[in-house]
């Protein structure tokens, strides 16, 4: 049975980070199963899952990756991973909605909407913020399949909009697929 690890790397962005990190994994005969990377305000972050045939502990792997010579320094966390790399989606797509909130930026917005989602059992699948032309936008992919009442969430989202003065809407994600993707939904 392969030894699976989940690896998280953070660094000031520069060319070559992916090459450095995956080079270490390759040198250990590791097989890369999944990877996601993102850059935010000049900082690079990456999460990846790799499987190793050879015996290696999470601490040893973290040390090897951290020892990569890097002008920026790599912050590395490694954990043992015993899940499935490509699990079936937790919910059927009918429960996937998008909440968008737009308006003037103010402190605590993300914390407040995060709290709202938690209180109503709404699972946030993805969260993105965009600041453009002075307008702050939060875009949340949420899974409502575990919630008791979609109506209650509509009300809570409306209330959040009134409280914050933001323009907040919740729409089923299919409308965005319909307008942006070639495939019929």
């Amino acid at each position: 049975m392969a030894n699976q690890m989940v690896i998280s790397v953070m660094s000031k962005d520069r060319p070559g980070i992916i090459s450095d990190v995956t080079g270490v994994i390759y040198s250990l005969n590791g097989n890369l199963a999944d990877l996601k990377q993102s850059v935010l305000s000049g900082y690079f972050t990456m999460i990846l899952i790799a499987a190793f045939e050879e015996e290696i502990t999470s601490d040893e792997l973290a040390e090897k990756i951290s020892s990569v010579k890097s002008v920026t320094g790599l912050e590395v966390v490694v954990k043992d991973f015993d899940g499935s790399v490509n699990p079936e989606p937790a919910s059927d797509q009918n429960g996937i909605y998008v909440i968008t909130a737009q308006g003037i930026n103010q402190t605590g917005l993300v914390a407040r909407i995060g709290k709202l989602c938690f209180e109503y059992g709404v699972n946030i699948l993805d969260f993105d913020t965009v600041l453009s032309e002075g307008r702050y936008s939060m875009i949340l992919y949420v899974d409502l399949s575990g919630t008791e009442s979609v109506e209650d969430i509509y009300s809570a989202v409306d209330h959040f909009g009134e409280e914050t003065g933001l323009n907040v809407v919740m729409q089923h994600s299919d409308i965005f697929k319909a307008t942006s993707e070639i495939e019929l939904v």
Binding site: D128, I139, V169, I175, F176, K177, T179, S180
Partner: peptide, 11 residues
């Protein structure tokens, strides 16, 4: 889906 496509649809 890209955030800019979502915001374009909202607009």
């Amino acid at each position: 889906m890209k955030s800019k496509d979502i915001l374009a649809t909202i607009d």
